[in-house]
Amino acid sequence: MRVQKWILFFSVLLSVLLPFLPLVLWSTSERWFYPGLLPQSFGLRAWTYVFGTAGDQIVTGLSSSFSLALVTTIVSLILGIPAGRALGLYDFPGKKMVSLLLILPIIVPPLSVSMGLHFWFIQLRLAETFVGVVLIHLTVCLPYTIFVIWGVFTDYNPDFEEQAQSLGASPAKIIVQVMLPMILPGITVAALFSFLLSWSQYLSTLIIGGGKLLTLPILLFSLMDSGDRPVAAAVSLVFILPAFLALMGSAYNLGRSGLQGVR
């Protein structure tokens, strides 16, 4: 058993970490011609570029990606927690249809929706604005949030709330002191979920944001074409870091249940 465990452990470790190897090597290479297995010389040209010349853009990209993801997540939670509660707790006529409608955007690609909305977003002066891009990210993030929270509420026992109510707690107090603590792990998952989805959106941001909302994916895509592999690798690493930190932060909170359902 022990041997099998270690085999499992190392094969998972290797396949997960392998893709990071070329990124790290390329980003620190100065000269690396074929067929050298390792760079002929190492250097920090790419990192100087990322933090020097392109520093402003990277910071802009980081902050706009971050604030977009944050706002989208918050709005998704505000709208998604009540909806998930309704779906998870109650029976009502037409429930199947309502849930279908709320969940359908998960499977329909954002590209179809963004292209349809673009023209009208321009007319409503929403195109190329922060709000416009938040709205298009919402079509992706909100359904996932509802999906996760719905699952949380199927195991939720509202009797505690009634007890609290009978003890004289106000509705606000019930939400903050009874409901939220009980569903907190679920909320963390949903929030991470939504954050990562927004964080990695490319095409919908490009269509609605028109390139003006310079998120990290947009920046990386424009650099990708450069064939400057050291720079592309360095920016890729910058792109992974915040989400990775978020994972580290939440790992403790979530324990072993992990990020199930996040893609």
Binding site: Q57, H118, F119, W120, I122, Q123, R125, A127, G210, G211, K212, L214, I218, L219, F221, S222, L223, D225
Partner: peptide, 25 residues
């Protein structure tokens, strides 16, 4: 600087904006 993959995308965007009547700003 607003980096794009291809300036044609921007031209196409301007065409859409013109159709949508966004004539300023």
């Amino acid at each position: 600087q607003v980096p794009v993959k291809d300036i044609a995308e921007v031209v196409s965007k301007l065409i859409v904006e013109k159709q949508a009547g966004k004539d300023s700003d």
